[in-house]
């Protein structure tokens, strides 16, 4: 399995999960995603930023402009309480969905 097409809506879940590990900027989120999924999941970077802004408008992440090492300004995102709540809910939904999928596929064999 490589370069899975991301299911609609799962990008939000992945972003929230990565931000749960700690605040990060956009590039960091995208490289972290590749790293953790061992290159199995790759976001189109073009959809990452609109997704981050959408999450921010929904109040599930918040962002801050920071001046980092070697004087570079970067927008750093962090998960909010509302974001954690949604992450928990969606993780449950996702796991239930994955379980059902597996049951159906294994039954079919």
């Amino acid at each position: 399995m490589n370069r899975t097409q991301l299911l609609q809506g799962t990008l939000d879940l992945l972003i929230l999960r990565i931000l749960e590990l700690g605040p990060n900027h956009g590039w960091g989120i995208s490289s972290r995603l590749q790293q953790i999924s061992q290159d199995g999941l790759r976001t189109s970077q073009g959809s990452l930023y609109p997704a981050l802004h959408r999450l921010e408008m929904r109040g599930e992440v918040r962002s801050e402009m920071t001046t980092s090492e070697n004087n570079r300004r970067a927008r750093v995102y962090a998960i909010t309480r509302a974001g954690r709540k949604r992450l928990n809910q969606e993780t449950e939904t996702w796991e239930a969905f994955a379980l059902s999928m597996r049951r159906v596929l294994e039954e079919g064999q």
Binding site: H25, G26, W27, Y49, R73, R75
Partner: peptide, 17 residues
């Protein structure tokens, strides 16, 4: 302005990588 600045940061990091 903010979006452009954010994306510029992203591109710079990607180039470095």
């Amino acid at each position: 302005d903010e979006i452009v600045e954010e994306l510029r940061d992203h591109i710079e990091r990607e180039i470095e990588a």
